[in-house]
Design a protein around this nucleic acid. Structure first.
Lengths: 112, 112
DNA sequence: AAGATTGTTCGATGATCACCGTACCATAGT
DNA sequence: ACTATGGTACGGTGATCATCGAACAATCTT
């Protein structure tokens, strides 16, 4: 969106600092079923996952879009690893900033 | 949206049952700053509040819109009381369905 | 260098959204 | 009955969103 992150856009990914994570952005990011699924899968593995191994019923570009929304909201961290890009849930940062939120969302997986 | 709730639209408000409350809808409803503020205010008073006493920087129709989103997502209950319409947080239903979620969101009020 | 794999960027599109003003509809009080 | 008052319904507008395909870029393997 902004214009000040152009020069590092291709080398370093845009990640908000832990104290910059905004609640509305987090809730919005989690309000999409596809992204919720990504977050759940990430939380389940608790190990960096390449984007490609997760959501299958959407196109590549849409997948990229969802991962960017999650990353810019501060929910995940992404880094390069060869040709893959590995994603991790920012559990500690989220728990520090919004205690209990992530657990509540993840725990709501199979309610009844 | 639907067409089956036409006959009770003006007398009885549309409320999802507790077990019909969907997580994405709840998160989406909470992802708007105005609605988050409404929910916080409702939670703070823990007593039914008329719509008019809460958000001031938006128009009447927009306020109605936000309250409807909150109600249809299952976050609040609205009922008539004379010329006013009183709103209450559906704390018990939310806690039963998504334990800890509401507390986490409300607790994230003043993070640092 | 060529090919394969993985992901991004770039429009574009249709849907949804937040917001508004105006008109309207209840109920309460005079 | 008239008039506030509190809220809804009805368009309408500009913004954002989820989605796609096609083209491109970066890395690895051969």
């Amino acid at each position: 969106m902004g214009a000040m992150d152009q020069q590092l856009e291709q080398s370093e990914l845009v990640h908000p600092r832990a104290d910059e994570i905004e609640l509305p952005a987090v809730l919005h990011a989690l309000s999409d079923p596809q992204r919720l699924r990504i977050v759940r899968e990430l939380a389940a593995s608790e190990r960096p996952l390449p984007c490609g191994t997760i959501v299958l019923d959407i196109s590549k570009s849409t997948r990229t879009h969802h991962f960017r929304v999650l990353r810019e909201a501060g929910l995940i961290e992404q880094r390069r690893d060869g040709t893959c890009k590995l994603s991790t849930l920012r559990r500690d940062d989220l728990d520090a900033r919004f205690p209990g939120l992530l657990d509540a969302v993840l725990g709501a997986g199979v309610p009844a």
